[in-house]
């Protein structure tokens, strides 16, 4: 079941964000000079950006709304094409991939959790989790029920998404994001629509995926408490990296966010 045991110890985190990986290994995610401009001649939603996320890292991305968080995530995850720059996932330059290979990469090496509308309403919960496997024509071999059990929904596999609460739906989405044991899991405000208690549960799942299974997670969030659960927080402002924090706590995060808000105003 577990490909790699949690080798990345949380205690000694080095800022891998802007420098080359000192260990010489391949980063889970690497962005070089990535920009994104939505309209020709318009402002850049993402300024040239360099970023490396080592394996087993839980990275939070924060910033005022409109600062380019979702854009960063979508470009990094191969959902959108950057206007310039290269994106590498596990060493693979996704800009060089053809349509089919890119799709396979999304299916096998990347997982997603959106803020809402994560599940296909016509499929059952178990089928939703199994979707990447089904799409790839892979056999289930117990991964789906195990994954559902891990998010505490082992008995809800036959239900429809509409019969679950918002937090349960997000847990199903996490189970699906993890089912292929991807290189990186991306989450865009996964707790944005949840109450603090439910949000806590969802974050605990992500944290556990990093600690126990060595997953790499990149999560956009607005919630300083959520960001404080990460190993590192990246602050964006108008498409630029404003600053970053290692081993953050929520008061630090609060302070940076307040400063950024003041600067923007």
């Amino acid at each position: 079941m577990f490909r790699r045991q949690g080798s990345a110890a949380v205690t000694s985190v080095t800022p891998g964000t802007l420098e080359d990986d000192p260990s010489g290994g391949v980063d889970a995610l690497r962005l070089d000079g990535v920009t994104r401009t939505y309209r020709r001649g318009g402002p850049a939603a993402l300024a040239p950006l360099r970023l490396a996320v080592p394996r087993g890292r839980f990275l939070a991305v924060m910033g005022p709304s409109g600062s380019g968080k979702s854009t960063l995530l979508q470009c990094a995850a191969g959902l959108d094409r950057p206007s310039a720059g290269t994106v590498r996932i596990g060493g693979t330059d996704i800009g060089s991939l053809k349509e089919a290979a890119l799709t396979r990469l999304r299916r096998e090496r990347v997982g997603f959790v959106f803020q809402a509308h994560n599940l296909v309403p016509s499929l059952s919960v178990a089928e939703n989790v199994a979707l990447p496997l089904l799409l790839g024509g892979e056999p289930d071999d117990g991964r789906v029920s195990l994954g559902l059990a891990e998010v505490g929904l082992g008995d809800r596999g036959d239900d429809r998404p509409a019969e679950l609460s918002g937090g349960q739906q997000q847990r199903v989405a996490i189970a699906r994001a993890l089912v292929t044991r991807p290189e990186v899991v991306f989450a865009d405000e996964p707790t944005g629509a949840l109450d603090p208690v439910t949000a806590h549960g969802v974050l605990a799942l992500l944290r556990r995926a990093v600690d126990q299974d060595g997953h790499t997670v990149v999560m956009v969030t607005h919630d300083p408490a959520a960001a404080a659960r990460a190993d590192e927080v990246l602050f964006l402002s108008a498409g630029h990296v404003a600053t970053r924090l290692l081993q953050p706590d929520s008061t630090q995060v609060h302070a940076v966010m307040r400063d950024l808000g003041r600067a923007a105003a």
């Binding site: 959902l79 349509e99 089919a100 799709t103 396979r104 999304r106 299916r107 096998e108 997603f112 959106f114 509308h117 994560n118 599940l119 296909v120 309403p121 979707l131 990447p132 799409l135 790839g136 699906r176």
Partner: peptide
């Protein structure tokens, strides 16, 4: 279209 987009995001090929 949102549902189709979701399916694409989790790795459905255009052909599928």
């Amino acid at each position: 279209s949102r549902e189709l987009g979701l399916l694409r995001a989790v790795g459905a090929t255009p052909r599928q």
